[in-house]
Design a protein around this nucleic acid. Structure first.
Lengths: 137, 137
DNA sequence: TTGATATCTTTCGAACTAGAACTATCACAG
DNA sequence: CTGTGATAGTTCTAGTTCGAAAGATATCAA
């Protein structure tokens, strides 16, 4: 079994796991009446940041972040404030309702994670391998 | 550092790695003048299978497999044959041009894989951890 | 055989995403 | 001070994806 075969195996497994994790986020989103992207955005909004920074944390394009922010703002979960030092940028700030929804999301995301079936040392090993990979890339 | 923190780390790392792998597929697709999904479909069509089996291998919905197959059939890379034993199903068969494109895709996918930076034993360890996870799910 | 239930494929509508174009603003070299 | 290029955010469009529903066929129990 050449290394190419392992390579392909790992690709498929990673994709499958990413899909499983997405499924978990989706279930949380359904429970909360939000879309998966909105839940991820809430998770990443741990502090006031710019739209571009949010896009980076969500690993998506800025235009998509705008789209998600529009929906969350419509729901009254956040506001776009002018940035204190850069008039091009805007500061994304969660409202009281937004903070509450974020707490709810974090709690639901923590429960029943698909990674729960791994022992603690396995989770650490997995994390270290993935970190080694992302460091090289 | 609670296990929750590791959990969140792993989620983000997996997502990031999946994104990196997608990027690799996208580069191959751009080179070949195809979409990423079409390249993945070609990779999985190692033998005549049904549309549903392809969807399973691609980890997507059957309706999406239909969409991708439509485009590949338009390009003359495959044909839908009636299934020999199940009249509901169809057998997806690559044409000569399809086989050629598949070989091209496999070659490009093998070159410069993002997993190349891991040693062989690390790749195996990663695969085993991921397999353990997908088995539980 | 007949009926109930499950499976395979496709179509359709809605939602999501990336990428390009555009405006406003910034940073900095001259 | 000024102009040149880079950056933040938004809008628009094209393409992709899912989910639900429909039509055809299969499977199995009565």
């Amino acid at each position: 079994m050449g290394s190419e075969e392992i390579d392909r195996d790992v690709c498929k497994l990673v994709h499958g796991l990413a899909r499983t994790l997405d499924g978990h986020v989706r279930r949380v989103a359904d429970t909360m009446g939000l879309t998966p992207s909105q839940v991820v955005a809430l998770r990443e909004l741990s502090e006031p940041i710019t739209a571009r920074e949010l896009a980076a944390r969500m690993a998506c394009e800025a235009s998509n972040a705008t789209f998600v922010l529009d929906r969350l703002e419509e729901r009254g979960l956040l506001k776009r404030h002018p940035h204190p030092t850069d008039r091009r940028a805007k500061q994304i700030v969660l409202t009281a309702a937004g903070l509450q929804r974020r707490e709810e999301a974090l709690k639901l995301l923590g429960d029943g994670s698909p990674l729960g079936s791994l022992r603690a040392d396995q989770q650490e090993a997995l994390r270290d391998l993935l970190k080694a990979l992302s460091a090289e890339a």
